[in-house]
Nucleic acid binder design. Sequence first.
DNA 1: AATAGTTTTGCAAATGTTTTCATAAATTTC
DNA 2: GAAATTTATGAAAACATTTGCAAAACTATT
Lengths: 342, 342
Amino acid sequence: MAETKAKKVDILTVAKAARVSASTVSRYFNHPDLLKPATRKRIDSAVRRTGYIRNRAAQTIHGIRSGTIGVLIPTLDHAIFAEVVQAFSDTVAEKGFTILLASHGYDLQREYAILRKFLEHRVDGVVLTGLDHDDAVFQLLDQQEIPCVLMWNHATGSRFPCIGADNEKAGRMIAEHVLSLGHRRIGCMFPPTEGNDRALARRDIVLQTLKNEGVSVPDAWSLTTVYSISESKADALRLFSEPDRPTALICGNDILATGALYGAKAAGLLVPDDISIVGIGDFKGSSDIEPALTTVRLPAKRIGHEAGKALVAAIVEQDGCDPCSLHCEPTLILRHSAKAKQ
Amino acid sequence: MAETKAKKVDILTVAKAARVSASTVSRYFNHPDLLKPATRKRIDSAVRRTGYIRNRAAQTIHGIRSGTIGVLIPTLDHAIFAEVVQAFSDTVAEKGFTILLASHGYDLQREYAILRKFLEHRVDGVVLTGLDHDDAVFQLLDQQEIPCVLMWNHATGSRFPCIGADNEKAGRMIAEHVLSLGHRRIGCMFPPTEGNDRALARRDIVLQTLKNEGVSVPDAWSLTTVYSISESKADALRLFSEPDRPTALICGNDILATGALYGAKAAGLLVPDDISIVGIGDFKGSSDIEPALTTVRLPAKRIGHEAGKALVAAIVEQDGCDPCSLHCEPTLILRHSAKAKQ
DNA sequence: AATAGTTTTGCAAATGTTTTCATAAATTTC
DNA sequence: GAAATTTATGAAAACATTTGCAAAACTATT
């Protein structure tokens, strides 16, 4: 039976109930093998009777790990980040860590503030999303000497260990694919890039790749569209309704591409016969939409998992070695939303 | 400039650097108005120089709030939960709280374990998803006297305050709508229900509503499909390819309905002419898919926001009043994936 | 039965903060 | 310019734990 009134049950309450000292109760949790089986049993029952729950805060001030990891993402509203976080969380939970989660909404100032809050909580490690962060963020990280990994993006020579895909490469791959299909009249739809190095890198490389082949994207065909199916549908519909329209549209992510697909349908265009549409990401659902989306896969689950593994390793390895960077290859996924220009 | 080596910077380090006592530094943070401006300035500079970051763990053992809230969800992989969590997180972050997030994957045993872990971290409050939980969970919550709200579902007479929509009502609304369109040959597609009271309630009420009007769903038309567009597409395709098929399909959520929409297209069926398809949830994208999905809106953002507001209120109100339950109305959203049977 | 060795336990100090109480400093009042 | 207030600061206790050290309780050995 639990106590009738839940007054301050601390380690001393348990100690009294078990007729041992506080130290013994502490050992019961931390080094049970040092205890006599009989004592162990007595404490066991006392813990149960009192409903005692250990206080990690009190442990933490002894330099013992807090068992928490701070996870800092732009937003959960993008399915792809939710997926990464889920994989990360599952991985570290297995090792007994709990995550502190916060999103900054692409506001670098806010990211710094959140990081500070994480550090106040004495997280054992942090994960940030993407490679680009305020300089103050990097300084803080350096100074506190806390294990950290940047996830989602990968680039060699990053200031901190990073685990993710090479977004530039992803952009190049999809652009090259569209070119290889014979398209020359190409439109682009990318999300706004402020505070978002991933989107920026992708757009730049796509434009560059096209340019290298002598294809330039006219302003009227270069759309900036927020991450939203309805917005991208509307924008695509507008673009597709012009008399002078591209034969292919490269979208910065699969959500935009999905909207564009709907927009094409609304405009009475057939995909891929009248227009080819491609995305980047290979989100859940991209393979099932009609027509199935041609895209580049960024392995979100794998990234989250690897990032979790690496960070946990860096935390529990006593020699404080930094986590290693890891490159998760993007892969071109050929489906049915793009085809060769006749 | 920050210290060259980041050796244990605690409140005493700062105190020494500012030539004051530890108490004064503490006051600098907690009651700055009690300090002489000159002292304040001196400490300010010392904090900056040393790179000091307060240790919440040390504060927490004084009975001061930890500033954390535990959020326990089934999974982030369902967009709708990600949305709720995002809204919740934004709301409580504004008041200075950070969330501890964990998912149990519909495993009640695991939910209990996670709750215990949250309590070890001395969270100031917890949010659980749904109304149904292991009895041990409720007991623990009672015993620890910690503010708690159940979010997502609402039902009067719930054991704990709950903030969410009435899932039974949502199910009834969509079933009644389909009936009102004149359909009698109706199929159902619902997710597996173990550990998932929301899905269970929805299915039961849908079946009951149909039955009340003399419509029964044959086993062959009653599909159990995991939350996945590909699975639901495949299952729907199979169902739609039978010679004897329903004229309407009620799906347990919009993801299943989306898959069913794709399945219909793959089967060569026209929606809504050949078959009406409806969902529950009104997820992002449901309004933009072609044809736009007829569904019942469960206001995820609002629920997350209200749950956050209520929980924070319960935490900061010293008189420890429980949060109030709140019912967020589901609303029927008429779009183009369902129409009257000719 | 005494000794040496081992296992089990308790005491007290330490952890990084906040807070109460007391004292020192500054300000006001006469 | 002294007394009476008010304001600002410091010393020490408190918080819930862990841990090094030493004492106590066993076991094994003779």
